[in-house]
Amino acid sequence: MKKLMLKAPAKVNYRLDVLRRRPDGYHDLRMIMQRIDLCDEIEISLTDRPGIRVVCGREGVPDGPGNIAWRAADALLALSADKPGIDIAITKKIPVAAGLGGGSSDAATVLMGVNELLGLDLPEKRLREIGVTLGADVPFFIFGRTALAEGIGEELTAIDGVPAAWIVVVNPNVPVSTAWVYQNLQLTGEAARVKIPCFFENVSDVCAILSNDLESVTIPRYPVIGEIKRELLAAGALGSLMSGSGPTVFALFEEEDAAVRAAETMRARSWFAAAVRTI
Rank of each mutant, 00 (worst) to 15 (best):
M1Q: 15
K2P: 06
A8D: 10
A8G: 10
V12Y: 13
D17W: 10
V18D: 14
L19H: 11
G25Y: 00
M33Q: 00
I36T: 04
D37V: 03
L46N: 08
P62E: 02
G64I: 05
G66F: 09
A69G: 01
A75D: 03
L77Y: 02
A78Y: 05
A81Y: 05
A81E: 13
I90A: 09
K92E: 02
K93N: 11
A107P: 00
T109S: 09
V110I: 10
V114D: 07
L117N: 03
L118W: 01
L120T: 04
L120G: 07
L120Y: 03
R126M: 11
R126D: 12
G135H: 11
P139K: 10
G151A: 05
I152L: 12
G153H: 07
E155T: 03
E155Q: 06
T157G: 01
V174M: 02
Y182V: 00
Q183A: 06
E190P: 11
V194C: 12
P197H: 01
V203F: 14
S204K: 10
C207P: 02
A208Y: 04
D213Q: 11
P220W: 01
G226R: 08
E227S: 09
K229V: 00
E231V: 14
L232E: 00
A234C: 14
A234P: 09
A251E: 06
E254C: 05
A262T: 05
A268G: 04
S270K: 07
A274S: 14
A274D: 12
V276M: 08
I279G: 11
